[in-house]
């Protein structure tokens, strides 16, 4: 799976302050750390950037490109910030993100073609977030058609089905998995991408990684192409590199409801199995899912 490191994010106090003070040092640390861990892209999440959108994004892109050659995924809802970042990206960047809303069609969707960038296109539209796989399909088909007409080929489109937190609505996790399996038929050539960490939003902090990692293995099996992930979750990176085949195999077995002798497993293996069960919707999620 293509991994996009999420850690350059204004939600982080350190990063937020570094951007505000135009202090390159924390940025360098974050960039080099993620690059060393093998991220394929770096996400630059600057939020809505109400103040000095163009200058802020420009500074950040320049600073990041001082320390890495990795391609960038520019993550903002502000089209002015987006455009000024795209203008100076050295590698083919990603616009993260556009959606089917009227506003996004007008302001974001024209940018990728102008700057030869890729486009992350979410299933959100003017009616909000579609509630199941079929509605997601209907929504993305309309947005795709619009993007194609603007001259963006499917090959440059990364579909974001929008992954909701399991603690908010477990059924949404199931329809997510159903939908990604439909993508090759709906949009041949397009990729799928998601914000993986959103899955575990509001879950106990020490267990978030386990949810994220397990789900990554599951959706990789269903054909997910890319995910925005923590660039510092070493186990996730090792799983993705194929360095933990026994865990991957175990997760697949649990997905297929094959008999797994829980008592023969190590605590870590047991946790992966239990997490798979919850993500498959076989048992009701609670924050203490590992304790039952």
């Amino acid at each position: 799976m293509i991994l996009i490191g999420e850690d350059l994010n204004v939600m982080s106090k350190v990063i937020s302050r570094a951007i505000k003070e135009r202090n390159p040092e924390p940025i360098r640390e974050c960039v080099e750390g993620q690059a060393k861990n093998g991220m394929d892209y770096l996400d630059l999440n600057v939020g809505p950037v109400k103040k000095e959108p163009a200058e802020t994004m420009e500074w950040l892109v320049k600073t990041v490109q001082d320390y890495t050659d990795l391609p960038l995924c520019l993550d903002t809802t502000n089209p002015v910030a987006m455009e000024s970042g795209l203008r100076i990206c050295k590698k083919k960047a990603l616009v993260n993100s556009a959606s089917g809303t009227t506003e996004s069609r007008e302001t974001m969707m024209p940018l990728p073609r102008k700057y030869s960038a890729g486009l992350v296109l979410s299933v959100i539209n003017d009616a909000g977030l579609p509630s199941d796989a079929d509605e997601r399909a209907a929504s993305i088909m309309e947005s795709l058609e619009f993007a194609n007409e603007l001259g963006i080929p499917n090959e440059d489109i990364w579909i974001d089905p929008v992954l909701m937190p399991i603690a908010v609505d477990q059924r949404q996790v199931l329809s997510y998995m159903e939908f990604i399996q439909m993508i090759p038929d709906l949009a041949p050539g397009a990729k799928s991408v998601c914000g993986l960490s959103n899955l575990s939003y509001s879950a106990p902090k020490e267990l978030r990684g386990l949810l994220n990692r397990t789900f990554m293995v599951m959706i990789a099996r269903y054909g997910q192409d890319a995910a925005i992930v923590s660039g510092f979750d070493e186990e996730l990176i090792r799983l993705n590199r194929g360095e933990m085949p026994e865990i991957v195999e175990l997760i697949h077995k649990a997905m297929d409801e094959e008999e797994v002798d829980i008592s023969s497993l190590s605590p870590k293996e047991r946790d992966y199995v239990k997490t798979t069960q919850v993500l498959m919707g076989r048992t009701l999620y609670s924050h203490s899912w590992l304790e039952v």
């Binding site: 603690a167 477990q170 009701l284 999620y285 609670s286 924050h287 203490s288 304790e291 039952v292």
Partner: peptide, 11 residues
Amino acid sequence: DANLTKELNIA
């Protein structure tokens, strides 16, 4: 919230 009901029961 059924998830929270379950969590309290587990505890």
